[in-house]
Design a protein around this nucleic acid. Sequence first.
DNA 1: ATCGCCTCCTGCGCGC
DNA 2: TGCGCGCAGGAGGCGA
Length: 271
Amino acid sequence: MPELPEVETTLNGIAPYLSGQTLSGIKVRDRRLRWPVTRGLEQKASGQKIRFLERRGKYILLGLEHGGLLIHLGMSGSMRVLTEPAPPQAHDHFDLETSAGQVIRYRDPRRFGCLLWHSGDVRKHPRLKNLGIEPLDSVFNGKVLYDAARSRRVAVKNLIMNGEVVVGVGNIYASESLFDAGIHPHRSCHRISLERYERLSQSIRKILANAIRQGGTTLRDFVRTDGRPGYFEQQLLVYGREGQSCDRCDGEIRKTVIGQRASYYCPGCQH
DNA sequence: ATCGCCTCCTGCGCGC
DNA sequence: TGCGCGCAGGAGGCGA
């Protein structure tokens, strides 16, 4: 699914068509998302001016004059800016429409995403309350990870995928970041030095920023708002490359399972 | 507080 | 060619 770079890419794609506009309507075709889309959400949001549009972790926040919307792309979600009227396809669950005539169409085959209404400032939505630090924020550094690791015993890969510690790092970028930092994904988070966490935090920032520049990673479902794929897949050095040779040491990339998730690493480069 | 496990859902690629 | 199985980018919720 969309991890931080894909959500950021999506946000950048829809922002020109939504910022400063009036949300004239919402068409919900299928309310069965991660949480059912509440009845009356369309009525509450429609006719309001869009005050702000921002990302928090993997959530997209759409702030209105009164209340706001919280959107998540789940594992398979994407949003498209329609260039012309088109009949909705399978899994096109809702449309956002602006008074300027733009239609933003949300698709999510697996329906793990969500569209939530919040009557107050959407930035205060309970779902956002326990989210950790933004990895691209200047306050994110090695000490954040090191401190979080003091009370925990999980594998370092699980630590950096824990949204209460740092947001936006999903399964692909966790593997890529750990490879970049030379840290074995199975290593206990408790047994990593502050110095190595400093390097890891820099790797996370570097990988995510680079992925955003490439428009994210498209493995299956993700597309940008203009329908093009993201191009970061070509720069994946370990994810999905089991059995292939490492670009750095020529060793063989391995696959393991951590926390029920596939994890890829190079035994020669990561310790 | 932390952790591991299970769950939601659909589609696809693989092996037989 | 057809079918069953395992697996897929997230993350909430549960019991221990």
